Simulated scan of single mutants.
Amino acid sequence: MKALRAPLLSLAFLLAGCQSVLMSPSGDLAVQQRNLILTSTVLMLLIIVPVIVLTLWFAWHFRASNPKAHYDPEWDHSTILELLIWSAPLLIIIALGAITWVSTHKLDPYRPLDRLAAGRPLPTDARPLVVDVVALDWKWLFIYPEQGMAAVNEVAAPVDRPIQFKITASTVMNSFFVPALAGQIYAMPNMETTLQAVVNRPGEYQGFSANYSGNGFSGMHFTFHGMSEEDFARWVAQAKANGGDLSRDAYVKLAQPSENVPPAFYATVAPGLYQAILTHCVQPDDPSCLSRMQAPLPGGEAGMPSHPNSSD
């Protein structure tokens, strides 16, 4: 026992720092996803546990030293046993299929929320807080179009107010993930994904990229603040008071690869910056700008302009 004490104490010490945030989230969408995990696990255990128990019981009961065990080498079929073997898993599969179909539509990240929490429907006059999210190398840019400000590696939202994240990336694919809030969703260049969410408890929650994107990936973390409406207004005012100007030139400098970037704020944002980032048109002469690619050709048709070195 003394030999096992040190390894057990070490294991307990390591596990003491673990946080089961996925099992105790603070956002209704994450709570529903947690409940889906628990329901699916219980349904599968209805098959797994009896199979394990019966396997051990059969091995013990039909051991060679048990004279009471009935041995019938001619036995090959039992209708009751066949019904149990096939009907129970079939019922579980049907139940899991129905739950998957319903939850796929109900928890669609693009679907507007219809409730703030269990038993609390969404008020008819509720307006979502829109946050434009840009995954950079290797940091996160959050633009608040309604508030006219932006933040790097820090984001906040009022408690019990729907949030609409519009997500894209500057160069490579990333994955936007706040475990306490909702499931992960990918951020891809020249594409926009959407995540509807709500936070139900005030606090500070960790967010990060869940998709490897290069050297600085391990430091691509941010803090999500859930706060009251009054605290959120103060957070916005403080960000505007201490922030600079996010012009297009400032964005180009910000988008350069950098690692472990501390939080920063911008009091103003250039008009149409997020849409320009989405279409790669921050710099008008960028050859990857979608507006240029779709510009009318001399013949009047839309298409990509010819490469200057092409023979066409």
Rank of each mutant, 00 (worst) to 15 (best):
A157Y: 01
K139P: 00
A6I: 11
W235G: 07
D245T: 04
F224I: 01
D72A: 09
H221A: 12
S40I: 01
G219C: 00
S310R: 09
V53M: 05
S40C: 05
L254P: 00
L116C: 09
S26M: 07
D231I: 00
Q206S: 12
P298H: 10
S247Y: 02
H307I: 11
T193H: 03
D28S: 12
R127A: 14
L141V: 06
L195K: 05
P308R: 09
E154I: 02
G148V: 04
D114A: 13
A151P: 05
S306A: 12
G17E: 09
C289M: 08
N66I: 10
A250I: 10
A250M: 05
V131L: 06
V133T: 02
A150N: 00
D108R: 12
F13I: 07
K139S: 12
A30G: 06
T193F: 01
L8T: 07
V134E: 01
L297N: 14
N242T: 11
V42E: 04
L8F: 13
L4H: 06
W57F: 13
E82K: 01
A118G: 05
Y71D: 15
L11W: 05
R63D: 03
A210Q: 04
P308V: 06
A276V: 00
S258W: 05
M293K: 15
P262Y: 05
S310M: 04
L43E: 08
G219M: 07
Y71P: 15
F142N: 01
Y71W: 12
G219Y: 03
A16T: 05
L11D: 08
N260A: 11
A59F: 14
C289T: 12
P158R: 00
L54R: 02
A187G: 07
N66F: 12
P179C: 06
A88F: 12
E146M: 10
A64R: 11
A264V: 07
A150K: 01
E259F: 10
Q147R: 15
P25T: 01
N215S: 14
K240V: 02
S24I: 02
G219L: 02
Q196W: 11
K106N: 13
G183S: 14
V198T: 04
V172D: 15
I80L: 14
P298V: 00
L136P: 00
A69N: 09
E230L: 00
S87M: 12
G300A: 09
A151E: 10
D137G: 01
L81R: 03
S218C: 03
A182Y: 03
N242G: 12
L129H: 08
V152K: 01
